[in-house]
Structures are given as C-alpha cells and as structure tokens.
Design a protein around this nucleic acid. Structure first.
Lengths: 107, 107
DNA sequence: ATTTTATATCGCAAATGTACGATAAGAAAC
DNA sequence: GTTTCTTATCGTACATTTGCGATATAAAAT
C-alpha cells in the first residue's frame, strides 16, 4: 500500500469523514448530542446491534477523537469531545465554502 | 448483513461522509474547487496514482453526487455538483451545530 | 473470595475498499 | 476503416470494515 503525503488538513478531514461514514456512528453521535452523554449500555438498548458491535463503533469514534470516555465504574460515560468536534466542524465548514467564479466552466 | 433503517438524513450524511473518507477524494474535490472543473487526465498528472485508480475515485464521488461529468469528447469534464454540494454542506452544518446544556453531564 | 455488572477485546466470516495492469469503449482525426 | 486519444471497466491481490458470539477485564456488591 503506497502512502501519498497529503497536507495535514486533508488527512485530518478524511479521517473525520471516515469516522462519520457509517449511519450507526452518525446516529450514535446524534444521540450523544441530545443526551450530552451516555453509557455503552444505553446504546445497546437503542440500537439493534450486538454489544460488541456498539463497542467497536465507540472505539472508532474515540480513535477519531470525536468522543471521549470517562470512567464511572463499573460504567463508562461517553461524551462528545468538544475540542475535536470544533476542529472537525471548522475543517468541514471551510472545506464546503467554495467561491467559484461563475464563468470558470468554459473549457 | 442486517440493514437497520435510519432516518433518511442520517443515511444521506453517512453516504456523503463515506465518500469524503479518503484523502485522495478530499484532494480531488479541493482541486475541483480551485479549478472549478477538470478532466480525468489532469488528475492523473497531479496525483501519483494509476489512471484506473483516479477513475475509480471519480466514480465514487459521482455516485455520491458530489461531482458530475459532462461529455466533451474525447474527454470528460468533471465539475462539482453544486446542488448536492449544498445539500451535503447543509447536512454537515446542522449536524455539527450542538447546543448542549452546560450542566447536562452530571450522571 | 465469589458473584454481578458493564464494557472491551478476540477470533471469525462476509463484505467492502484500494490499488494496479490490462483491456474495452467512444468519439475524432486521419 | 484504422489509428489516436481519453476515460471506463475488468480481474486480481491485499487490506480494512462490519457484524457476531465467546471470552477477558475491571470494579462493586455480596
């Protein structure tokens, strides 16, 4: 597997996007937006997926930096990582801001 | 493979995110933002990837609706699909707007 | 110390993604 | 009609992702 070196922002944006690239993970984050936090078990009740599958999705979201886990033994409380959330938001926001000249498509 | 039925917006957002989930595709779209349009061959010169690989990435971006191809025989001119772009932008934008009460994380 | 509770990790199978070279397809130019 | 140019598609190899059940871990409660 060759690895091209893109600009750090490009890589970062792609990493965030990849983490968001599954409906279950989007739904988990939306749930977290409403609840502000939750335990793994809450999600297992909400989604028709095995506990191990939920845990795996949480792991990916944590790895991407979009959520963080806090130990509340014997549970783990997950919240959105607001700092990285803002970073992702800013990256997507600036990415989608296009300013194309209207007459540019003439070739 | 079980298929959970999420809300259409959730699915749509995940589809867009998935399409953006590779640095090469992000870079292609950034290139298109600057150039406003381009041919496949342009990209093959810019990226150290085989022509078939570039073509595959373009196919995915087209399938996701983020770009569109216009026949300019013998070439194909690719531009950003502005209508869907705005849709994606709106989806990401509203997704990232969180309004969490400060005192919510108390459980 | 054993049991209970909550979550993570392992091992597996199936599906999907990424990259390549080779080949096909389409239109233009000769 | 053959050649040329540009792009798409095919076939293949390897890596990653997604899902599950089973098992491990870690702390609390008994």
């Amino acid at each position: 597997m060759e690895h091209i070196n893109y600009k750090e922002d490009t890589e970062a944006l792609a990493r965030f996007a990849k983490a968001l690239g599954h409906p279950t993970r989007i739904a988990i984050l939306m749930y977290l937006e409403n609840q502000s936090c939750c335990f793994t078990g809450d999600l297992v009740e909400v989604f028709p997926l095995a506990q191990s599958t939920i845990s795996q999705h949480l792991k990916e979201l944590k790895l991407a930096g979009l959520i963080q886990g806090e130990l509340k033994p014997p549970k783990i409380k997950y919240c959105i990582n607001h700092e990285n959330w803002e970073t992702a938001k800013a990256l997507f926001s600036s990415f989608f801001e296009i300013h194309v000249a209207d007459n540019a498509c003439t070739s």
